[in-house]
Design a protein around this nucleic acid. Sequence first.
DNA 1: TACAGGCCCGAAAACGTTTTCGTGTTGAAA
DNA 2: TTTCAACACGAAAACGTTTTCGGGCCTGTA
Lengths: 341, 341
Amino acid sequence: MKPKLTLKQIARELDVSVSTVSKALRDSIEISEETRQKVKAFAKLYNYKPNNIALSLKNRKTRTIGIVLPEIVHDFFATVISGVEQVANEKGYNVIICLSNNSFDREVMNMEMLANGSTDGFILSIAKETQQKKDYHHLEEVINQGMPLVLFDRVVDEIKCDKVIIDDTAGAKKAVQHLIDIGCKRIGIITTVDYISVGKLRTQGYLEALEANGMSPDEDLILKIEDMQGSEKEIAEFLKTRDLDGIFAVNEQFSTSAIRGLLNKGLKVPDDVSVIGFSDGELAHRFIPSLSTINQHGAEIGARAARLLIERLERSVDAEESYQTQIVETSLIERESTRHK
Amino acid sequence: MKPKLTLKQIARELDVSVSTVSKALRDSIEISEETRQKVKAFAKLYNYKPNNIALSLKNRKTRTIGIVLPEIVHDFFATVISGVEQVANEKGYNVIICLSNNSFDREVMNMEMLANGSTDGFILSIAKETQQKKDYHHLEEVINQGMPLVLFDRVVDEIKCDKVIIDDTAGAKKAVQHLIDIGCKRIGIITTVDYISVGKLRTQGYLEALEANGMSPDEDLILKIEDMQGSEKEIAEFLKTRDLDGIFAVNEQFSTSAIRGLLNKGLKVPDDVSVIGFSDGELAHRFIPSLSTINQHGAEIGARAARLLIERLERSVDAEESYQTQIVETSLIERESTRHK
DNA sequence: TACAGGCCCGAAAACGTTTTCGTGTTGAAA
DNA sequence: TTTCAACACGAAAACGTTTTCGGGCCTGTA
């Protein structure tokens, strides 16, 4: 068990000073060619790698970005991580992940933990409970400390920072418009309660699409779900008493629950009812019938968030406080759960 | 933008020395009650939090555990992360995640990066390419450096370290036995090529189950898939020409592809053919028909791995080199894709 | 011979902690 | 009055780097 080579040991071994070793390894012209080669050869032979912690302390940079998520067992967030990881790695950054489990307290805890030197900046999607509480002091805190923050997906206007979002309203509108285009007349929506920002926006898109086509919304066809837990049953109940020919569901789970509910009712998808969802994942394309969806391009979101963050970290003068909000385009993916024209 | 309070600043402000501040905050008896109170009050008021990097450097401990995975957009690995994160958080550890994308080079790179001070130990599931190459020098390296390593899922005998696995063979046997119990006579298996350790073990379980029931294995009913990419087509082709009444698939993806293939062939699941898989995820229980599976208990695996790692990190004398391999029990979950007796 | 100017290199500070050791002051005991 | 312990605090080293600054030694020139 050899406990990691340090500059000091190399120096002792080669009978030079620590500074000489450091300079030699960084190819300083202060050091003679001969000494340089000697040091480098030794370092290479014994596989010297500088200690990240020491570097972080010295440079007051960790080259690590922290990402805080509500959950991970959810293809959307997983693909976002992939995207972040990809560009972070390209630029020589590490990624450190914390889960809030949609709890306000854990979100705060995690951010405090990471803010004490572990991380140069944050990429975050706000926890459900936090959105409900509308308490964002921990976000302002890190910004005040000069740590860049990039919000994605579940964002909030009050916080001034870079953001990466999709146009949820437009995406939802696109989905519902598709249902209308293929001839649906009575279109229901299965969405979340309004304090979830994305849920609210998607509901709005649904309403806009109806309006744009001269169809008046029917409160009775709108189901807002509070709790993921009992959602399956709730959706089944809802469908039992409604007569629909199109359903827009704001996520993968609701989509599949809806299809199951319809099938149980003896209806066929998409022959009797077309279903379209919002999603990114395996589930959508594996499902039978495979789900027509609005693709959120999670990896792209993650990649952009990472790029924004790193750019701000490395910009020599960050005087310019012009935060930007990037909007990633959604796309309609037609699969089997909607009728074809 | 206030740039984070340090001990030095508190010291200057209160006109005492840095050591006094440090001691006061840690309630040292060396410091008078009065000074202690004064310092603590000040620290609290301005929300002082010690700098993790400095602590890491001093203590030569980061209280961070690194987890390296082949992929993340896969419910199994995502749940494992959840498990790790949970216990890590309880014990005051951070989790830093790197993705190998099943590439040997990226696995090596990531581990080298993390090994240079970012992490106290590793939790890892070996990349496909690495298992193929059988090159584990990077794993031995970190072990030699005194960094504990815990392997899970895709493990390898050659490396001496703690491991958390499920009994893949027994799990597979359980699955196939179930198919036999409900009356299947011609049972096929859809598995991976043999260099994937878990694939090989599950194939073995399949064979053992057949043997135990006096059924002779038929090579023609065994499909070994090399590449995830074209798997769907490959499975469809395979099924087209086989006459089966039971299928055991070694993962979620293969299970759903199989069902799709069967449906396309005009067969009913589970009426004509029962299908059972190996999995953890959303897909299995959302799918229609929902999948009967062998549950791998990913969160439990992650939790145990984390506990093993932390225990080894904190054991005062790690003299004892008795590595253990923990086996997490699998369980059979009967859902809709298999016939009921 | 003296001096300027390269060329190489080392000492030391700094990043923010913790901890060991030393030191000055006070009060009480001898 | 002297001595000694207890008490309260500070200086400094250490963790592993990088970087600034200063200095010794040679070489060439006046």
